[in-house]
């Protein structure tokens, strides 16, 4: 564990808590893409299959349980409890265009052609594009609530901090995982235009509204 990864995990934790607070306080899931949350649930389920078979640390287990629990709770809020406020018309990204190529790539490019390894690789690749339905939804509605912008900023920062973690691990431990790093770079790049909007607008108290 190093400071970059700890900050990354805390940023990820903050993103999930911000999202839950937004939903619970406003009793609304307006502007939130249910499809992205389903993709995140798939990512966590596929990645944490070893939750019961390999124990790494209390911290690792607690975080995995929290991430899996909250993402399914979020899906429950979107598609059941606050279903009336779910904007399915704008949440129209075709996730099959993500899952099929990512699934195929996981079969072709992985560290070892073994079931658990392929599933893990699939979760890494899927996570790098899982935010697309959410960003697509914001581009369709043309705006994002400020709290949603904070959620996305924290979520985008988490993987950016993981990139720092991998740089640190490369120089400190000589460890390097090309698959995780490449997917992490792609994932962070997808947030760049949002980061730009966030820093130039939200930080100055304005709302994010696309092509103004």
């Amino acid at each position: 564990m190093n400071i970059f990864r700890l900050c990354g995990d805390m940023s990820h934790l903050a993103a999930i808590i911000i999202l839950l607070l937004k939903m619970w306080k406003t009793r609304s899931v307006a502007g939130i893409s249910g499809k992205s949350q389903i993709l995140f649930a798939t990512v966590f389920t596929a990645r944490y299959l070893d939750l019961f078979t390999s124990f790494i640390s209390i911290y690792n287990t607690c975080m995995k349980v929290f991430f899996i629990g909250t993402v399914y709770f979020t899906i429950y809020l979107i598609y059941m409890k606050f279903k009336a406020t779910y904007d399915s018309n704008h949440d129209s990204f075709r996730v099959e265009f993500l899952i099929v190529p990512v699934g195929g790539l996981a079969f072709l490019v992985n560290h070892e052609f073994a079931p658990l390894e392929i599933i893990w690789t699939f979760s890494i690749y899927l996570e790098s594009v899982a935010i697309l339905p959410q960003l697509f939804m914001i581009s369709k509605t043309g705006e994002a609530e400020t709290i949603t912008s904070h959620y996305l900023f924290a979520l985008g920062s988490y993987r950016a901090l993981y990139l720092c973690n991998w740089i640190y691990r490369y120089y400190a431990e000589g460890f390097f995982d090309l698959i995780a790093v490449v997917a992490g770079v792609v994932q962070t790049i997808l947030y760049c235009d949002f980061f730009y909007l966030y820093i130039t607008k939200v930080m100055k108290g304005k709302k994010i509204s696309l092509p103004a």
């Binding site: 390999s54 790494i56 690792n60 995995k64 890494i124 431990e173 995780a180």
Partner: peptide
Amino acid sequence: ATEQSSKDEL
């Protein structure tokens, strides 16, 4: 050294 892998990451 611990078996180096990304699996110890979240």
